[in-house]
Design a protein around this nucleic acid. Structure first.
Lengths: 210, 210, 210, 210
DNA sequence: AATGAATGAGAATTCATTCAT
DNA sequence: TATGAATGAATTCTCATTCAT
């Protein structure tokens, strides 16, 4: 048969309507995280994801009609978690010192880290609707900017945004520490922690001195 | 037991003996950089690289026996350039202020940047012998550490190494600025520059205060 | 890999550049005619066409990048033959009686018939660029109309066109006779022949009587 | 040896006992006509037919155990209608002129036409038991032959059959007119009408002249 | 040495049909 | 009985790599 969807939008996953389906979807997503993380988006195969989640390939496609749709769903879930985490953190900022905020951000990243590497793989993938990816990036930036605004008095929104971008980049480095030799990890972590603190404190100081 | 070399080391198959060959190789490598950058390692095809360099696919394989070998060669060339640049920079460090060194590092990254995006694509690719990649990373770190050692008096080698790692990560961010909206680029660049300076100056100060 | 041609035009076949390739292409096209005829466009598989022409599937795709492209090429070849045949016939019309022209048209169809059934399958297929199909239809109609114009004096172009359409439809019936029981074929053929003659003669008479 | 019935005859799985079921079946059949018409037999999917008739795929299969069975049922329904129409027409023939009969046949086809295109799709499909198709064809031919016999005095049964075949083919052309450009339709219709009349009248005349 | 043809494993995706709830 | 999940063979198409001229 000739494909009946010559130019279709990214295609959303069919929502499971029974308990069994929901379990399947969960299993698939977990397996997908693993495989994407191990191999990257391109090299990961739907077949392997199906196999690892003990799902027939047809069933996999029932819920995720496209490799891309699957990645998208994963990213969405991840984004949700990240967003929630940031929102939570933001609430606690008022009662924290700047250093504590810096540490909290680092801890937050560390918490997400298990999923982060796959997210990196997917976010960096070039194919597909960058739409979601952009929105995700934006959400992260807004979240971090929000925290910064609360943490540093009189920080202008524009600067908060810029700092958020830089900060997020730094935090990516934190996640990357996991790939280093075990012996070096502790020191590296400490160094990153210091740098993050330094960045926030310095920014705060610059404002106060004005 | 014989040493573990089951697979022939992926390297250039034939050293081009004649001028004609060297041109071919150069054309191929240039095309490869373009294609790898545009599509990423996996999505790039040998056929397209051949086409873009006006090379027959068979000829391409004469020079680079596998896709991986081609990537490796590219990486090697890139590493060489980076190394040379760093070495050069290192020589000039003694006559520079710390801030100038920070700026120079940023400028250096910017210079490499055109090739950097493809390098990122290749370095992040998981397949194949990480051997080269590791060596490349090591070289970069050593180079930057060397510069730091010369730039900051009494900096212990171990700390220089740690700082190099952190610094290199930051510099990657600098390269990433290119992907941002044009309107935001200048500010972001400035922010990164500040941060790099801040990092070096702060590290230097910490030592002096001891 | 993700496909690199998300929305590409029907894709033309790569022209073979060596003798071997040309033979391949011929073998493939012959096999394709057979398979399309036997199973129809949808049910025919590229795998089977490859197998029947003793071609590796990859080679098949080298020359015909799409199932559709293959069908298109077949149709083109067929159209060319039909066109040529009609053009030839047109030249001879002046020296023929009307009945002879009628018979010649029937014979012409019979000649094409071996390929006709597959062409029907392809022309009727819904997918793909109707462009070629339309052009083919138009060519046939023009050809037949030309013959009619030469065969029937004072026939107006517009009427010639209309008659051509009707005539071509009748001729399709002639081709369809092959599917009937052998015992009935001869009589059916004769009946169709008579009808075609009747049609032409009657049309001619109507003009003369004016 | 037992008679060759290896596969169960594809027929309605369950006669709907209740009103509800009958509605379902009707909805399914209607949707099926639409989808088959739009896409052709092969490209039509059971899933889509189910969706369009708001039927669960499982339910669809309760009523029609295979895709083929569904097609068969559709064809059967169509055949019934055609048969009835022809039978009705046959009764009226004695009081009609030959020309009127010709027109009536054309009108009859036009009436069926809405369903005809799908029927064409299915009749032309090669898969499955041609049994039904043959029977359908036979019924049509008999019906038309009957009409002819009544319309043309002294027409021998054998000739009636042959003429029926030719006539039916011509009538298919009438149905095909719908695909032509609107501007051309009227003229084409008239031409086909004339041809049908011409055919009947001429046949009648030939007999009388004997 | 250069070129383009050949190869075939493997990837994404579809869909008729069967099962379990 | 009705529903939606499960299944997996089959299909189109890709591409790194090898061969033959």
């Amino acid at each position: 048969m000739t494909p009946s969807t010559p130019v279709a939008p990214p295609a959303r996953a069919t929502e499971p309507k029974r308990e069994r389906g929901r379990q399947r979807v969960a299993a698939i997503m977990d397996a997908a995280v693993t495989v994407f993380t191990e191999k990257g988006y391109d090299a990961a195969t739907m077949t392997e994801i199906a196999a690892r989640s003990a799902t027939a390939i047809g069933s996999l496609y029932r819920f995720f009609p496209t490799k891309e749709a699957l990645a998208e769903a994963l990213l969405l879930r991840y984004a949700q978690q990240a967003k929630n985490g940031l929102a939570e953190l933001e609430l606690q900022v008022p009662e924290m010192t700047l250093e504590a905020v810096a540490d909290a951000l680092v801890d937050f990243v560390l918490l997400l880290q298990s999923q982060r590497s796959f997210a990196t793989a997917l976010v960096d993938a070039r194919s597909g609707s960058d739409d979601h990816r952009k929105r995700f990036r934006e959400a992260m930036r807004s979240g971090v900017a929000g925290i910064l605004s609360r943490a540093i008095a009189h920080l202008k929104p524009a600067r908060a945004k810029v700092m958020a971008i830089v900060l997020i980049h730094m935090l990516k480095g934190v996640a990357g520490v996991a790939n280093e030799e075990p012996s070096a990890r502790a020191v590296l972590m400490a160094e990153f922690r210091d740098l993050v603190r330094l960045y926030l404190v310095s920014a705060s100081a610059r404002i106060d001195s004005k």
